[in-house]
Design a binder for these strands. Structure first.
Lengths: 97, 97
DNA sequence: TTGTATAATGCGCATTAACGCATATGCGGA
DNA sequence: TCCGCATATGCGTTAATGCGCATTATACAA
């Protein structure tokens, strides 16, 4: 789990949005993520691949869907970073609204 | 202070190294940073410019030097992110050694 | 004024990242 | 088996990033 890889994985709006959605632990298919985040299918799939390579999420095939969710057992160092980033992002969105 | 800008600013090894050096609050000139981090002059200057635009550092002209330091009065949300990133980076470096 | 040291910037190049389109793959249902 | 839905991926294009080289700007000192 490389910090620099983690940071570049998070520094893209669609990916950060996906992490925000997945961070509560729930499972979400690509089709849901793409509609919620307003991304095309290939874009969404590729972004999820990057998050997966970074080690932030895992995927599971469920019939014709692929369900993504927050990776379990993430090192606390990493969890702290993502938590802090999401807190700041949420605060930022609130102030922008 | 945009979270995405912050994340991309941090997701480059030389810049992350610079932040690590500056984060204790001390002032450091470009010439020092470039020797410590092993960067050329123009590279170092540009990277510091990016950190400055991101709002993470401020600079001050002192004779022929430009002294950079951690930006004062950063929002707590932002400080928490950088602190978490540096903690993870330090832990990572220790385990790599 | 001229020279030296430090830092910033214009410019071109190489690499990487992001994207859309089209196609392939995996899976279930008719 | 054939079709349709969901997802991944190959490919080409475009944009962004990082870099070095050379030049310029800024400040001090002789």
């Amino acid at each position: 789990m490389d910090v620099l890889t983690l940071l570049s994985a998070l520094s893209e709006p669609t990916r950060l949005g996906a992490i925000r959605l997945l961070w509560d632990g729930g499972e979400h298919c690509v089709c849901e993520l793409m509609t919620v985040l307003g991304a095309t299918q290939s874009r969404m799939s590729r972004h999820m691949g990057i998050l997966k390579v970074a080690g932030l999420v895992t995927d599971r095939r469920d019939a014709q869907w692929v369900r993504y969710r927050r990776a379990p057992n993430l090192p606390p160092d990493i969890t702290r970073i993502v938590d802090a980033v999401l807190a700041a992002a949420n605060a930022q969105e609130r102030s922008a609204a």
